[in-house]
């Protein structure tokens, strides 16, 4: 097999490519001097780094996670700054969805006498009617159960759960029939009083 005849133009390119390059010995020095003469790149400040455009490459999974995080933040903030009607609650007193133990300087002592009882709980609107949240402590051997807790000023409905059975406070006025088969007691707490 004979070598194919090359095009003259190709042969010229090959010759030029193979021709040894003869450089001026001072050229390297001139180039380096020119480089040194250039001003050093300025160090970027924090603001410049922040505002300088950048390109990111995200996988679909990473992008989904970032989006989910942003949505989660939005939901988190939104639920705490808007009520169920979409009204802003910023600057407004919080509307308790679940009644919580109020913070108050008014301390109230509840007493229930039940010598035979094993467990007594205080249950009312101030603890979200939680039947296990506010236990009374047997303070003596004569069956006196007590608990002291802070309450906001105002009218409070409550009852005692004595060994699983609802009971009213004999020392307090009765509230109207609750409609559920158990009466409640009422305590009116004045601001700053200690009962």
């Amino acid at each position: 097999m004979t070598e194919p005849e090359l095009h003259p133009y190709v042969e010229w390119i090959a010759r030029e490519a193979q021709r040894p390059v003869i450089t001026d010995s001072a050229a390297r020095d001139r180039i380096m001097a020119a480089v040194r003469a250039e001003p050093a790149p300025r160090r970027l400040g924090i603001w410049s780094r922040v505002v300088r455009p950048r390109s990111f490459t995200l996988s679909p999974l990473a992008g989904t996670l970032v989006a989910a995080g942003l949505v989660g933040m939005g939901v988190f903030v939104g639920t705490r700054t808007n009520d169920r009607d979409g009204q802003s609650t910023v600057g407004q007193p919080p509307v308790a969805v679940a009644p919580r133990l109020p913070v108050s300087d008014t301390v109230v002592r509840f007493v229930y006498v039940a010598p035979q009882a094993g467990k007594v709980y205080l249950v009312g609107d101030f603890n979200g009617w939680d039947t296990n949240k506010t236990p009374l402590v047997r303070s003596s051997t004569d069956g006196v159960w007590t608990v002291t807790l802070p309450l906001t000023a105002g009218r409070h409905l409550y009852g005692f759960v004595v060994d699983g059975s609802w009971s009213t406070d004999p020392r307090a006025p009765l509230a109207p029939d609750d409609g559920f088969g158990h009466a409640n007691s009422v305590k009116f707490v004045r601001r700053g009083t200690s009962l």
């Binding site: 509307v95 308790a96 969805v97 679940a98 009644p99 249950v123 609107d125 979200g128 009617w129 939680d130 039947t131 409905l157 609802w166 609750d178 409609g179 559920f180 088969g181 158990h182 409640n184």
Partner: peptide, 13 residues
Amino acid sequence: QPLLSKALEGIAK
């Protein structure tokens, strides 16, 4: 709040 409290009371009872 009294309405919510009434509902919670019913649930508790």
